[in-house]
Design a protein around this nucleic acid. Structure first.
Lengths: 338, 338
DNA sequence: GCATGTTTGTAGATCGGTCTCCATGTGTAA
DNA sequence: TTACACATGGAGACCGATCTACAAACATGC
């Protein structure tokens, strides 16, 4: 007994039931000009009676799909939770729906696929994507990028103040008396000098501060490779040395979690300071208690969505929002030991 | 200087460039029958030259959008990471794209909005959604539900073996010598008896096992309310009592994290056993080291996506996949203390 | 009463594909 | 050579909305 897929209710069905034209129904649902109260009532009754819902595909073909696409690198990244939450907040109450698309690396494929008519606008967290390519994309569809330090012409950016944030971390560690500080960050590709990614900036700040403090020869950058296991091994090797670091400045909280795991595995919990970035909910957990930089991820997500909505209203000049940062000092960063 | 939004390349442009009809181009991109090698080459050249990409909206209007929708309750839920990862794996290599939609509660709105033509099929994690409503939805679009113990006629289900999983937890705690075991779970709505949600089943198993063990009067169910703060307060109140529980069986790992936080805040870390469910990546972290039930979330996500793809191929009889569970014993669950 | 302006509702083109015929060309069997 | 099957490409309807132009109805001012 196979059930035939039931064709859904179209605008024509509503028009017929209400005894009006399709155009009239369209006007009612779009709240357009030229509808008498009497007709509105009849049409709305018909819509309710039939349970009509406009087809997104048909709408998108002519006008807009009322969908906003939010591309994120990996659902598991804790920071993304903040971004998504913020974006959702900003979109609530508007006629727009948020749609998420997970992507890998520079996300060209995912971004293209969203631009293929799925959504009216795009918010993306894609630090590696080529700026020129994005400019071109932005000629086809409104775009807001999160976490880029570039100054684009056709899209908006929302970015944290990584210079201040990373600076606050370094200040904090120096004040505690740390000198042998390691920076644990993302792979090369994500931190290439001049690439303008948040992690490139944080890395640069680390280097600069170390140098300014006369600790240039203690500069050490460890990269997390793709596997968590690799990061763990790297961290352990680092901690096994005689001149092991007294502090680890991790590029973000997820990396910091790996660092904490490495420190714990080496039996050094509490004896090596660890700091994170993003102030994710885990950082607040008493068993983690991670010093981290709050860059207002929720606010960033909300701003990005708001900017996108503005663009959909017609704005074309680029905007840029820089989120302020606050260092949240917690138990994971103590004075140097041993 | 406002840049006009550039109209994108359509199938007609390609047809003109290649000197063939629109229908011919359509055939080529769909890999349909009736295309000579010569024409294929010309058309493909034109496509490449113009950088043509078919409009999803237009395609969806007639045929399919090649998008699969995955509805998830909350991006922050750790278990969802596994589901999404699995689904992504299963979809990779097919012409389909995965699209995520966050939802709240029963998700009617979100599910409707996906069914409005955005996607060709739906995977959803929505334990609260009414079964009859889903049956109706499934007449309009293929549906696969994750985490439901019902036996639907028109949609597929992928569900963990909650009876075995929760049973394994209780066995484990009993073996360790625990008697005063509290079950920390979701709000009432999610655990209503007979609702068939995973959490309702886990709760029932808890009750049954306690009763079978002659511990009926020690049964105690604490619910996490919406706020994390509330859960924490509840846990602390629980732990402040003279007859405080020696073990907390949490409904899933995120709840277990709250429980661990509560235990830590009460200064009882290591003295109260805590178990979770889902075996999320956090459970493996040495600072958390949480005993948890592995129900193969990645596999569940992958199965769900595969089932949906099968339905898109034409299958209509309902299928059901029950994932096996394995208890991962870690440091968070020790023998009763004090 | 008539010209004019304002509402109100409709007809029909349009968006960019898919898909069902149908016409033509080519190869093969009788 | 004729008949027929089959391979190939195209014409045109269609999907379900939006939106412009326009017609009809109605109100207003002189």
């Amino acid at each position: 007994m196979s059930i035939a897929r039931s064709r859904s209710v179209t605008i024509s069905d509503v028009a017929q039931t209400a005894g009006v034209s399709r155009a009239a129904v369209s006007k009612v649902i779009r709240n357009a000009y030229g509808v008498s109260p009497a007709m509105r009532i009849r049409v709305e009754a018909a819509i309710a009676e039939l349970g009509y819902r406009p087809s997104v595909a048909a709408r998108a073909l002519r006008g807009s799909s009322y969908r906003l696409g939010l591309e994120i690198p990996w659902v598991g990244a804790r920071f993304m939770t903040q971004i998504v939450e913020g974006a959702q907040l900003a979109v609530d109450g508007t006629p727009y729906q948020l749609v998420l698309a997970p992507a890998d690396g520079p996300a060209y494929g995912t971004l293209e696929s969203m631009a293929d008519g799925l959504v009216d606008g795009i918010i993306a967290v894609a630090p590696l994507t080529d700026a020129a390519w994005l400019e071109e994309l932005a000629t086809r569809i409104p775009v807001v990028m999160i976490g880029r330090h570039d100054h684009p012409q056709r899209y908006d950016t929302v970015v944290g103040d990584d210079t201040a944030g990373a600076g606050a971390v370094m200040d904090h560690l120096f004040e505690l008396g740390h000198r042998r500080i390691v920076h644990l960050t993302e792979p090369e590709a994500v931190t290439a000098p001049g690439s303008g990614t948040p992690h490139a900036v944080r890395l640069q700040v680390y280097r600069d501060r170390m140098t300014e403090a006369g600790l240039a020869d203690l500069i050490e950058v460890v990269r997390r490779d793709d596997s968590r296991a690799g990061t763990l091994a790297g961290t352990r090797a680092l901690l096994a040395r005689d001149d092991r670091p007294t502090a680890i400045f991790a590029g973000h909280d997820d990396i910091a979690m790996d660092a904490l795991a490495g420190v714990a595995a080496a039996g050094l919990t509490g004896r090596v300071a660890v700091t994170g970035y993003d102030d994710t909910d885990l950082a607040r957990h008493p068993l983690i208690d991670l010093t981290s930089v709050d860059q207002q991820g929720v606010e960033m997500g909300a701003r990005a969505a708001t900017m996108l909505l503005e663009r959909l209203q017609g704005r074309t000049e680029p905007r840029r929002h820089a989120a302020a940062t606050t260092l949240r000092v917690r138990g994971s960063s103590g004075r140097p030991v041993g």
